[in-house]
Structures are given as C-alpha cells and as structure tokens.
Design a binder for these strands. Structure first.
Lengths: 353, 353
DNA sequence: CTGTTAGCGCATTCAT
DNA sequence: ATGAATGCGCTAACAG
C-alpha cells in the first residue's frame, strides 16, 4: 500500500460509508464538474443555477444513483422538514382521517410526518413527545388538550409551532383546531327533547385517557339538567371495556337494566351505538319507536344501518388539514393571525331518532 | 464587547442554535464536570460509566432540559433508528393493525416508524420510497410485492433489510411476511360448494393498485373452474367506486342483475360484504336462505351483523409483528434463517353462508 | 452564478 | 473509566 504522505498524529482511516448510498453531493459534483455547494443549491432551488449546470447535475444524480441525506441536511440547516403527530390510536378511523388531512396539507410543502399512537395514555404520550422531540421536528400536532405537566412543558419549550386538536380549550399550548364536544352533545339532547323524548340516558365507554368522551358526558349532564332541573341525569357508563362495537351490547344492557323506562340512548360513539343498534334487532327492541338511539362521529356504518343512525358529524379530515395549514404558516415564520379554529360539527338527523 | 483574540480571516459568528433545545452534550458535560463523550456513553450505555458519574450526568440532563439530537447521532453513527413503512392507506383498519404490530415489535428496541400511505398508487409508492430513503431508515416495510421498477431497484440497492407484506410472492425483494390471497378465496369456494352452493359469484371492487383484490378474483376463477369446468366463472366487479360499505350495495345490485340465479356471493372485502348484507335486509333478500354471502378480512362488524358474516380472518397484526421481528434481527446484523413467513388465514364460518 | 470555508451535534477511534 | 481528536454529509455565510 503506497503511502505518499506522512499522516499527522491522530490521523485515521476515513469513516466513509460503505453502503449503497455512499454517494455524496461531492461525488455528484465531481461527476458534473461543479462543487458540492452548487449541487446543494441546484437540488433545493433549480432556478438558482444555470440551466446547463442544472442539466449536468441532474444527469450526474441519475448516473450515480444519488439520494440526498436529509439527516445531514437537517443538521446543517437546523430544519428537519418533519412534523410530529400524536393520536390516541392509529387504528381509529376518525384519527386516521385527521392524519390524512394533515398529510394532505403538509406533503405538498415537502414535510414528512412522524406518527405515534399514545393508546389513550398520557404517560405514553409524554414518552412519545420526549422521543419525538429528539428528532427535532419543525412542528407538532397532538390530539387532545390534556397532557402531563412535563409533556406540556416540553412542547412549550420546544420553540416550534404546536397545534392541539379535537377538543376546545381556553388555554392551548400554542394553536388549536377543534370543536366543543359539550356543545355537540347538547345539540343531540336538544334534538331528542324537541322530538318528544323525555327520559334520556347517556350511554358510553369512558377511559381515563379520553377526555373527549368525558366532555360528552359532561355536556349531557349540563344539557339535561337545564331542561329537567328536578331529575338526576341518567348515566350508563362502562369503563373497563374496549371502545368497540360489541361493547355497545354491554352498554345497551346496562342502560336497559338500570333505566327500564328510558326512551332515548345518547351514545358517546358511533362504534358502540352501532353495536347496540344491531343488537336491538336481535332483541326485538324497535328503534326508534321503543327507543331512540344516537351516536357520535358519523362513521361510515352510521348511514348504512337500518334504521340509519342519527349522529354528530365531525369534520375529522378538516381538523388535520387546518392544523397543517397553521403549522406550515408558522413554520415559515409567518405570524398566524387566528391560531384557534373551531371547525364545528353537524347533527345528522336520521331514522334512529 | 471585549475582543481578546484576533480572529483569523474567514472567521464568522458561530451558527449555534438559538432555540429551546440549544443545549448540547457539551453543555451537559460542562454542567456535570465531565466531557461530552462521557455524556454520550452514559446515555447510550449507563453501565459504562461510574454510578457517581452517571448520577451527575442525569442531574445535569434534568437541570439543562437536555433532549438528545438524533439527527446528529444518526449522522455520526450511520444508524437512524428509524424504520420506514408504506401502506396503501392509513385509514384502512387492517393496515392500521399491521402498523400497530410493527410498532409493538420495534418500539421496545428503540426504533421509530416513518409512515406513509400510497393511496393504492404505485407511482405514489415510488415517490414515498424515494423520499423515505433520504431519511436513511435502518429498515423498510412495505405492503405488497408489486412495485414500479425504479422503486424496487431503489429498495434493492438501499442496502437495508426490506420486508414486503400481505401477499405471497416467489421473488421478494428481500424478506416476506404474508399469505396467499388465492388460497384463501379457494378455501371460501370450497366451503360454499361443500354446503350445496352451485352458482357462485365473485363480487368485488378492483383497483389498479390493489393486486391483493386481483389475486382474490384469480383465486376464485381458478377454484370455480376446477369444480365446474363447463361453466364460465361469474364475476360482478366494479372498478370506479371506492372501497366502502355503500359500494357493497352497488356490487350487490350488479351481481343480482347479471346473475339472477346466483346462490352465493363471494365478496372481496368485509367492507362491501357488510354494506351488501345490510342492504339485503332492506331489499327483503333472505341471507343465507336465498343467498349466501361471504366477506374477506374479518372486520369488527362481521361478527356483529345479523346474520353474522362468514369471512376470512387474516392475522393482520401478526403480519406487522413478524415483519418487525425479522427487521430487528436483520438490522442487528444477524443472519435471518427463514426470511419468508406465511402467516396463513382462517375461515370463519358464520350464519351468512 | 459559483466556489471556499467552517461548523451543525454527535459517535467513533485511539490514547491514557 | 474517561478524554481528545476527527469526521459523518450537508448548508450558511461570505468572497469572488
């Protein structure tokens, strides 16, 4: 091995990558006959170089199979072009829709999304926040406005735009895109009472990490108390069961056992409302004649059932796209005039009520 | 401003980060009275430093609110601790389950997941592959074995473990975790024929980017041809409609119009089978007396319907966890003995057939 | 429009 | 067990 120069002390063999993507901008530049810096510029802003230079570089990129290394780009520019997103669970279609909306708004701007599911647990959310911040995202989206104190502190200190979603809050960490779960249930209660229902039962699954469901319960209690001040609000709530269709049967039975005279069941989710509605067919309970049933979320199944399910439609996708819009603006350094967006909701009156 | 040293020419102000996470390992080390390297070691392997040193460092981390920068770590170590995953759509619960399984296997090992949805389009998949490889993931998971030529080439050249999932293929790019969609449908056909059905119709939604649905159709054609060599296989397929419950009604009507004497409908997905089954109630079609109906996927709704839906259960979550297991082993540099895992499927016989 | 220089924050390598 | 030097691949800042 020829050694043409004397290495200074402490000099070692270079750590150059062996892998397939060992080619760097310098390699591309060498191939194209320009400097690495020009390659960098050409890739980020093609108009900043001569058309001829651009052509040479593009050709060199192709020839060398070059794939840009974003980690290095991130380190040098202090921009990761990533947005972190935390949702309660990946397998709930409503949150998946929100993420779809987020992606629709962010992808065209070149941002990638880092997704995590907290499994409805604030401690896991905190762990995710901590771990995600290590990747230095340029923005953060999180479902919910309730967080552990350290998680909120981390997000506040991160120095990046943060959007909370799916709820309404007086004191968001930064920006907010949501709606009032309370008001939505109040709307359901108003609808039922207007149609002659008198003995309403709130039927739901409540878990510690799901403040949105708790808000719906509170909204129910408030709305019923306002109309029937002398009555105790009727609640049929389970808290150990999963938020799934078959739990609807369980909640239905609980409600009927505890309140045999009920004439309307206000479910906290379409998922359990659907399970209950299908069970009613088997049990011979006539809906809406014997019992009105309402859901929440306007899931795909709601419109397909017989009778079709009355429910609250939430613009889940729009929550994501609005959040993305706000994040993009803020990440660009623009001052966001209105950082709180109420996307509202819509009562879908169908046959079940 | 005191200037105690003469700057060499070309010297500029440092680019040190201003943001909240400006603290580096050097800052932590200074606070703890050790070098940055010791901090680095302590964070990665707490046993490699003195308990006392560890304590000092942990305290310093807390005091300075230090959050490790993974981008720098990645660049220096050439390990990103990320796995990229591409699925057809985020909002399909079956794929969400697979991702959940993947996360279950990878998170404990410290890997984070980069998720993308191709929207059932191979060109978008290629774009995602390209963009994801720029992040230099340590492993790659992708649903499907069909890819554009450049996408497959990129994955092959990437020099990282790749797992394809949800199908079966003779020539995977690298590793494979799936099952035979053909065999699954053949199993359904066998079941129906054994129970006296003679005029089977394949009812489905086919889209260019969904080879799994196409496999199911092909499996149907093969199985029927093997049993009734003289007949032309009956197909009721729509290709412009979304894969949604309400499309089931459309497919049902098409099948009945085209094959009025059909005695069994083999749907390509529980989603459309459920929509069709619910429509049958409204239309007065008795299931299974007039018509047997089968689905695919064993979605949550399948067991809740009346009659409950006969379907193929796919271990969706296990596809993800097995993929994660294989990736972890390969990323550790272990030689994976069996890189092809057939997770199989199960016929769930219920009331609808 | 293009090249040069320095450094982003960390892990690796070697020395102690 | 700990420290010092070096470079990962890229972009910012500046010079020409």
């Amino acid at each position: 091995m020829p050694k043409t120069s004397v290495d200074p002390p402490g000099r070692r063999a270079p750590r150059r990558r062996e892998g397939a993507f060992g080619t760097t901008m310098a390699d591309v530049g060498r191939e194209a006959g320009v400097s690495a810096q020009t390659v960098s510029r050409a890739l980020r802003d093609p108009d900043s170089v001569t058309p001829e230079t651009l052509r040479l570089i593009q050709e060199a990129v192709r020839k060398t199979n070059y794939v840009q290394n974003f980690a290095a780009s991130h380190l040098a520019s202090n921009r990761s072009m990533m947005v972190a997103a935390i949702i309660p669970t990946i397998s709930a279609s409503v949150f998946a829709e929100t993420i779809q909306g987020l992606a629709d708004a962010l992808s065209p701007q070149g941002y990638q999304i880092f997704l995590g599911g907290s499994d409805y647990r604030l401690d896991r959310e905190e762990a995710l926040v901590r771990s995600f911040l290590g990747r230095r995202p340029d923005g953060f989206f999180v479902v919910g406005t309730r967080h552990t104190r350290p998680a909120a502190a981390l997000l506040r200190r991160a120095g990046i735009p943060v959007v909370e979603g799916w709820e309404w809050s007086a004191q968001p960490i930064d920006m907010l895109v949501g709606f009032s779960n309370r008001a939505a249930i109040a709307r359901v209660v108003a609808h039922l009472v207007e149609h002659g229902r008198r003995r309403l039962v709130f039927a739901g699954v409540l878990r510690p990490g799901d403040p949105r469901a708790a808000e719906r319960r509170d909204g129910f209690v408030e709305a019923v108390a306002a109309r029937f001040p002398d009555e105790t609000p009727r609640l049929a709530i389970v808290d150990g069961s999963p938020l799934a269709m078959h739990t609807g049967v369980e909640v239905l039975e609980l409600a009927r056992r505890r309140f045999p005279d009920a004439d309307a069941l206000v479910f906290s989710s379409d998922l359990i409302a659907s399970g209950a509605l299908l069970a009613c067919q088997r049990l011979g309970i006539r809906v809406p004649d014997d019992l009105a049933i309402t859901g929440f979320g306007n899931y795909e199944i709601a419109a397909e059932l017989t009778p079709a399910l009355t429910t609250i439609a939430v613009p889940t996708r729009r929550i994501g796209s609005e959040a993305g819009r706000l994040l993009v603006a803020a990440m660009r350094g623009e001052t966001v005039a209105q950082g709180r967006v109420d996307v509202g909701f819509e009562l879908m009156v169908r046959e079940s009520s």
